[in-house]
């Protein structure tokens, strides 16, 4: 009788232990499996960013895009040439924009002006904009840091 009782108690403990152990391992393995799941973006890569298609931009138009943690500005000049810059004004950190009426890159905050090579030509900006490299593959536009 005694032995039976201890036996069943032991069996219960084993089951409980096994169950808890399994739960524990489940909780350890879960993040591991989730980690191996392919993330939405396949890789961390700002070595080049796809900005869109050539057809998205007519000459004399521009577009803002995300370049790493910073905004980027892609401009198609009236001659059809593509230019890209980090769109953060070198004065304070406002985002610059392309003004097709003046053919300049313009910062609305304090009227800072840059030419289409990113050179600061008027207003408070102390330095030129950081230029980016534009690559065109088929009809897709890629932007990467200047080497």
């Amino acid at each position: 009788m005694e032995g039976n009782k201890t036996n069943s108690r032991r069996g219960f403990l084993n089951v409980l232990l096994g169950g808890t152990l399994a739960t524990f391992f489940g909780m350890v393995i879960y993040p591991v499996i989730r980690l191996m799941e392919p993330p939405k973006l396949p890789e961390a890569d700002i070595s080049s960013v796809a900005v869109g298609k050539i057809t998205d931009l007519k000459p004399d138009q521009s577009k803002l895009f995300k370049f790493g943690r910073q905004p980027g500005l892609l401009i198609r000049t009236s001659e059809g040439e593509f230019k890209a810059f980090i769109a953060t004004c070198t004065h304070l950190d406002c985002t610059v924009q392309y003004r097709s009426d003046m053919k300049i890159i313009w910062c609305a905050c304090h009227n800072g002006q840059y030419d289409l090579n990113g050179l600061n030509v008027a207003g408070p900006p102390p330095r030129p904009l950081t230029p980016l490299e534009v690559h065109i593959k088929d009809d897709a536009i890629f932007v990467s840091p200047k080497a």
Binding site: P31, V32, R34, P39, L41, A44, D45, S47, G68
Partner: peptide, 19 residues
Amino acid sequence: TAFESVQFIVTKVKYGWLI
């Protein structure tokens, strides 16, 4: 890429921050 990939791990990969 090193810094960016670690940043990627801790922000974009599920449970990457934990591991």
